[in-house]
Amino acid sequence: MCVNVVQAENFSLITDEIKNYANITHCRYFSVDTNTFCIKGDGSVDNFCRSLQFIEESYCPKPALTILQLNGLKTITSSVLQKMFKALVEQQNSFWQEDEHYCAWFESSFNRFTFFDKKQHICLHWVENVNTIHKGLFSIPYIHVFSRWLSREKYVFIHSAGIGHQTGGILLPSKGGSGKTTTTLSCIGSGLKTIGDDFILLNYHTFEAFNLYSVAQFERNHAIIENRLKHCIAPYNSHTDEKYQVYMAEHLPDFLIKSFQVKAIVIPNFTGETNTMIQPADAGKILLGIAPSTMFALKTPMSYLSVLGNVSRQLPAYQINTGTKLSAISESLQQLLLTLP
């Protein structure tokens, strides 16, 4: 029973078990564009909602997606789930199973299990111990669930930061280490705002981009950014190898906006020079910047590439060669935004 319950033919059992938790009262509500969702469960809900605070709502009557968030075994009233979680932890076999109806995976390094019923829009996210798991897991929680829930009809997720104003902004897509977060954080206090620094949601019909996660993560060797944001970093612990995290809704709420119209895509490229320069880029370079890291990280269907290809072709493309003088980065982006229609 323990092993069989994580087999694809038994996924409907998990959906049924999740429905038994309908009366849980600890519930938080969120909305992105016109899509509403709720996260309910035990105390671990609050850990995983921290990066979603900026899009939190006081209440949503009929959330389109329900996520059941559970921690440990004490609060698990379902014997089926109890046995399954115990078996998963004992077996220590990471797996990923996905078909058109369900997606389920277990990561043994974190002892966490995620299940998503794509038709009924119900998710279960269980962690063995919320107090000891890698803090990075709190920064972009449920991203695979959100991408499967919303990547239909008109949305794509893009591994990208977004910088601009209510009237329009730019996407800064890139894989790690290329200066995306540095570029974003250099704009604090410049008048520019952000819709996020990791994954943003894009309506690829209207090119409106939406804030989902208001967290910025950066490597510990970035002294300039670290000194500037020391008071915001949580947890500020210099003795671990985890990235620094800045929960912007808590510390930099004025820096955040919920959405903007995308005017261009700008690929960041850290040069190490003093000055910053922006130059035109071609669509292929943009696709190279947005597709691999987005698609590999989200384990998307391969058809995602065609959508991202069209996005790359339709939006103006630039490369920003960022220098070490942080104020020059935001100034260059401000100037670019002024030139874009």
Partner: peptide, 25 residues
């Protein structure tokens, strides 16, 4: 087929290979 996807532009092609985690220009 399956784990390969590509997009062709006027002067380049971008290919993704999800099985290997590689990509090509």
């Amino acid at each position: 087929t399956g784990e390969i996807a590509f997009e062709q532009f006027d002067n380049q092609t971008i290919i993704l290979n999800a099985a290997k985690g590689s990509y090509y220009e």
